[in-house]
Design a protein around this nucleic acid. Sequence first.
DNA 1: CTGGTGACCATTA
DNA 2: TTAATGGCCACCA
Length: 104
Amino acid sequence: MVSDKDTVYGIIRETIRQIPRGKVSTYGEIAKFSGFIGRARMVGYALRNSPTGMKLPWHRVVNSQGKISFRRSRHHAMQKTLLVKEGVTFKGEKINLAKHRWRP
DNA sequence: CTGGTGACCATTA
DNA sequence: TTAATGGCCACCA
């Protein structure tokens, strides 16, 4: 069955799916582009609930500071690796958002 | 219902 | 630069 919330998460995932290779976006921006201003946390929640089979470019979503939102974990290391492999440049722990920020 | 938690954010100190 | 704070809201005990 399909509820309104499923739709909300679906829209968020659709937006994330549009992020091209080598580009990144932030939780707040994704929420905004999806029509949910101020609901950045919902983006994180939607991703957390998305199984790997969803094949979303989850690694292209970082926080507003250009940093990875995971604390020490495999995900943190993997995300950075995947991004670097796509050509995203890091300045220490931060991504150069001015250069890689994506907009729809 | 209440309170705690969280892949967040902007502001303030 | 890091921390604390208040705001946001779905989910869970």
